[in-house]
Design a protein around this nucleic acid. Structure first.
Lengths: 140, 140
DNA sequence: GTATTTGTAACTATTCTTGTTACAGTTATG
DNA sequence: CATAACTGTAACAAGAATAGTTACAAATAC
């Protein structure tokens, strides 16, 4: 799979914004730090903006800044903003054979399991704020 | 992404084997239930065999059966056997810019977070046995 | 008004998963 | 012991998702 690094990049972006306090940061600058193209960053910023985590400004001297204090942004919000359809594991690609007893009934069981696992992940993410991330980064 | 459904299929496979008790089940039969090609099933069975969850037998009248009772197979083993490199989220594709303070230090922080999240998932999976899955399937 | 910056579309490249064909090796069974 | 039935696996094609790139319209500070 082309492994999905959007959450990792989103956290990186937000850490940069957090470090720059109230100042507008340009997508070019973030792209240089992440080591990718500025459009990739702007795409992610779009999602973060819709989630009301950041505020962007077009035009000369524009850029992006945090919409809230790092203490008030938790990683679950970031996760959901970056990966709106995140799931720890995927269900069957083709629907199983409904004429087979297992095939007919396994999907519901897997769905329930999936929901429970996803919940465990989200619960864990909820415990961390962007401020925690920034603190960890600075401690190194 | 081509979403990875290998864990879901692995559980499906094992549920079929569990239901067939000690009898050899053929990859063709499993493939028909999963609604895919038999080679896809055999590939997964290979991993399950290496993890000592199943025993396969080549030749006429061959097939695969569980290596242990369903009560003694937990879903974490299945997860690891099906997805040896599973991670809930991926890290940066390109290493970040080491000249940038955030770029230089964010990876380690994300790695730690990743490890913690993965652990939460594994802990959850550990609580379920194949017998639990089979029971849920039958209860429907 | 001009330079700067975001937002976004459109397309390509990359990478991973799944599906398929083919065939060598193994084994039960008549 | 020949044959049919299976697994194991390689090799490749197809499919699907992410990431990278180019281009340009729209917005805005100065």
């Amino acid at each position: 799979m082309a492994a999905n690094s959007q959450f990792a990049v989103a956290v990186h972006i937000l850490a940069m914004l957090a470090k720059s306090c109230e100042e507008n940061v340009k997508s070019d600058c973030i792209a240089a730090s992440v080591n990718t193209n500025a459009v990739v960053i702007r795409r992610l910023l779009c999602g973060l903006q819709q989630a009301k985590l950041v505020v962007s400004q077009t035009g000369a001297n524009g850029g992006t800044r945090l919409a809230r204090q790092p203490e008030n942004i938790n990683l679950l919000e970031v996760y959901r903003a970056a990966l709106p359809h995140a799931e720890v594991f995927a269900l069957h690609r083709q629907t199983p054979n409904q004429k087979c007893f297992i095939g007919k009934n396994i999907s519901k069981v897997l769905e329930n399991l999936q929901a429970e696992i996803d919940e465990a992940v989200e619960e864990k993410l909820l415990r961390y704020s962007l401020a925690d991330v920034l603190e960890s980064v600075e401690r190194k």
